[in-house]
C-alpha cells in the first residue's frame, strides 16, 4: 500500500492504493467519486475516460496511479451546469449527445485541443477527435459544438 497525492481540480487529494499500476480512472471514479470520466475500453481506444493533465488530453484508463503527476482536471473541474466552460456550454447549446456516454471524452479532448488551436477548421476538429468513439452517431453535433466553442473563445 502506498499513499499518492493527486492534484485534482485545484485540490490536493491523498489516496492509499495497493497496486501502483491501478489506473487513475478507477481512483477518480471510486475513491474521489468524480464519475464524469467513464470506463469505455480500458485500452485507450475510445477516449471516454479522458482527463486533462497539465494541458494535455490523457486517457486515464491507461495512466497508472503511480504516474499520475501534474495538474489533473476532470470534467467536473471544467465547469458546472450553473457555470459551464465554453466547450460545455457549446455542447449544451448544440444538444451534442444522444446517450452521452462519450461526452466526457469529447468535451475534454475538445477543451484541450482548443487551448492550443485557435479558430480550427471543421477538418481539424474531426482529426482532433478521430480517436474518440461515439456509437450513437452524434458526431455532426459534436463537431458543431467544438466549432461553436472555438468561435466563442
Amino acid at each position: 500500500m502506498a499513499r499518492y497525492a493527486l492534484d485534482v481540480n485545484g485540490q490536493t487529494r491523498s489516496i492509499d492504493v495497493h497496486d501502483p499500476q491501478e489506473p487513475l480512472l478507477y481512483v477518480l471514479r471510486n475513491d474521489l467519486r468524480l464519475t464524469g470520466a467513464k470506463y469505455g475500453c480500458g485500452l485507450g481506444q475510445c477516449g471516454a475516460c479522458t482527463v486533462i493533465i497539465d494541458g494535455e488530453a490523457v486517457r486515464s484508463c491507461l495512466t497508472p496511479i503511480s504516474a499520475a503527476k501534474g495538474k489533473i482536471t476532470t470534467i467536473e473541474g471544467l465547469g458546472t451546469p450553473q457555470k459551464p466552460h465554453a466547450v460545455q456550454a457549446a455542447f449544451i447549446e448544440e444538444q451534442a449527445a444522444q446517450c452521452g456516454y462519450c461526452t466526457n471524452g469529447m468535451v475534454m479532448t475538445t477543451a484541450a485541443f482548443l487551448d492550443k488551436t485557435k479558430a480550427p477548421s471543421s477538418g481539424q476538429v474531426r482529426d482532433a477527435l478521430a480517436a474518440n468513439v461515439c456509437r450513437c452517431g452524434a458526431h455532426d453535433r459534436i463537431v458543431k459544438a467544438a466549432l461553436r466553442a472555438a468561435s466563442a473563445k
Binding site: 464519475t35 470534467i75 451546469p81 449544451i92 449527445a97 461526452t103
Partner: peptide, 21 residues
Amino acid sequence: VRRPDMPGKATGSHVWMHDFA
C-alpha cells in the same frame, strides 16, 4: 424544447448506471 439531461451530461454530474453506487 431542450433536453433536460444535457447540462448534466456535459458537465459530468449526470448519474449513469455506471456511476451509481
